[in-house]
């Protein structure tokens, strides 16, 4: 069953001359949910940004294969059109750019790339209605300029709404849970679970075990100092919550690094 969607091997990346990722190895198969946890500044967002193709990050070593493609060769928009979606930790505001208009353009760029007919306004609205029901997102938000003046939680929900519209093959969620109230957390997690299909996968970055009660991961990885220092099943998250990161760091210093 398990076809790999993403294969990261020995990935090193720099930003402004500093090495942040120091040899990441990670394979994600179809149908799997992986969680990445780790202390502040350990490189979680960096990994997400590198996968999405942010040009500020320079890959110095290693490779990333995504559904048979050399991911690092692709422009950010090509990656997106191939089904890589990043829900940003800090979604930017696009003043004056209407949210519906923005997403219709995005969806059509993706559809065009896949050789599908572009959606007209009516098709698009039907889809939007369907997704808003699933995600229980206020319609007013969608007609406002993208993220402009949104609260922290609204921004995160908007990211998930965009994800639902684009139906990615690989969804990377960078701390989508932080800033969400308890109800929103459940709704967002619900949305993610509903999108789950045997042929796609998710990489969920979080600090909190709580999210993983809702989105149950197949694997949990601990990223520290630019490397994955421990991997395990969902129980690892509980153990981390209890013992803190120092415990894993200690283990890794003793040379018991486990890789998937």
């Amino acid at each position: 069953m398990s076809q790999p969607i993403l294969e990261i091997s020995n990935l090193h990346a720099h930003v402004e001359g500093n090495e942040i990722l120091k040899g990441i190895n990670l394979t994600i198969n179809q149908g799997e949910v992986h969680a990445i946890m780790g202390p502040n500044g350990s490189g979680k967002s960096t990994l997400a940004q590198v996968l999405a193709g942010h040009e500020a990050y320079e890959v110095t070593e290693g490779s990333v294969r995504y559904r048979g493609l050399d991911l690092l060769e692709l422009d950010p928009e090509e990656r997106a059109r191939e089904g890589v979606f990043l829900a940003f930790q800090y979604p930017v505001e696009l003043p004056g750019v209407n949210g519906m208009y923005f997403m219709k353009a995005a969806l059509n760029a993706v559809r065009k790339h896949r050789g599908l007919d572009e959606f007209d306004a009516a098709d698009f609205l039907t889809l939007v209605r369907e997704k808003t029901q699933v995600l229980d997102i206020p319609k007013e938000l969608l007609n406002r300029p993208v993220n402009e003046g949104f609260s922290g939680g609204e921004k995160k929900r908007n990211e998930i709404f965009q994800m639902a519209l684009l139906e990615p093959s690989l969804a990377i969620l960078d701390e989508t849970d932080s800033g969400l109230d308890i109800d929103a957390l459940r709704i967002v997690a619900d949305g993610v679970n509903k999108l789950k299909r045997p042929d796609n996968a998710a990489l969920v970055i979080t600090h909190y075990q709580r999210l993983l009660d809702y989105i149950v991961p197949d694997f949990v990885h601990v990223l520290s100092g630019g490397q994955i220092i421990k991997s395990g099943g969902k129980e690892l998250a509980l153990e981390l919550e209890e013992k803190g990161y120092d415990w894993v760091k200690e283990l890794s210093r003793e040379g018991t690094v486990e890789a998937v």
Partner: peptide, 16 residues
């Protein structure tokens, strides 16, 4: 740059 990157991450070209 981050605004442009955000748009590109959603599939839009840099020009768009």
């Amino acid at each position: 740059e981050d605004q442009i990157f955000y748009c590109r991450q959603r599939g839009l070209s840099a020009e768009d």
